[in-house]
Design a protein around this nucleic acid. Structure first.
Lengths: 132, 132
DNA sequence: CAGGATCCCCCAAGATACTG
DNA sequence: CAGTATCTTGGGGGATCCTG
């Protein structure tokens, strides 16, 4: 599988289609805004629930849901300390850490090209204002 | 900027916050399902509108909108051939190609860890069924 | 063929309130 | 503190029809 052209080949059409679907699934999870932000954040070290909440400016609900999904996928671990008040720590698993690498490369690209994209947008918008 | 912990530091709080926001913006564009799929597909070579449409199983509307955004961001180029019938070719720009690299690394990670994630999910779901 | 214009639906995600 | 439960809404995105 090449990640490039992904059309059905005469050779193994159904298999490719299935693979593509699976990749879409993973990318859906991975592409999710909050998932990415959480992974990036936890890459900096273990954090508690409300720490993440404040840090990301995410709502309680979305944080809770996203963390559960990430834990289900094995990307993060949840450690509950039955103290009073309770304390729950979230951290990247080895799988999560391996995932954070390509994610960081995307992040780095984003940083490196922020202004680049801005220039493109301005040029595009300017051209739209002056049609011809 | 480290992409790790991104909390306000005493040093430059506002700047960090602004950067984070920008990164979120770019990731929002980049994280978009169709944007990623289109970039991956075009990484395989130039394609026409309906080719992309068939290939991705995307609706006309979404394809049109997403292509416009990608063009605005300078990731893809649009070449119009005023023939009859008209012919429009889409291709990655150099910026788009540079972006496709980290995207491909994510794709590769996804492929490498599909089964890995499946196992984690099954284990998680099984544990949920047998709550201790 | 390449797309613009419209209508419409559904659910992702925010806000709010409550609990162990 | 670390969540769950419930209600509500914006807009993402599909379907359909139309044009140069």
């Amino acid at each position: 599988m090449t990640l490039g052209y992904m059309e059905d080949t005469a050779a193994h059409p159904a298999q490719d289609a299935a693979q593509c679907q699976r990749i879409k699934d993973v990318l859906a999870r991975v592409g999710d805004r909050w998932s990415v932000m959480i992974v990036i954040t936890l890459d900096g070290g273990t954090m508690r629930f409300n720490e993440l909440k404040r840090h990301l400016g995410i709502t309680q609900r979305m944080l809770s849901l996203t963390l559960k999904e990430l834990e289900r996928d094995g990307l993060i671990s949840r450690t509950y300390h039955p103290t009073i008040p309770p304390k729950v720590e979230y951290a990247l698993t080895p799988l999560g850490k391996s995932f954070s690498e390509p994610v960081r490369s995307i992040g780095r690209w984003a940083i490196d090209n922020l202004t680049n994209i801005d220039v493109c947008r301005q040029r595009y918008d300017a051209a739209a204002d002056t049609p011809d």
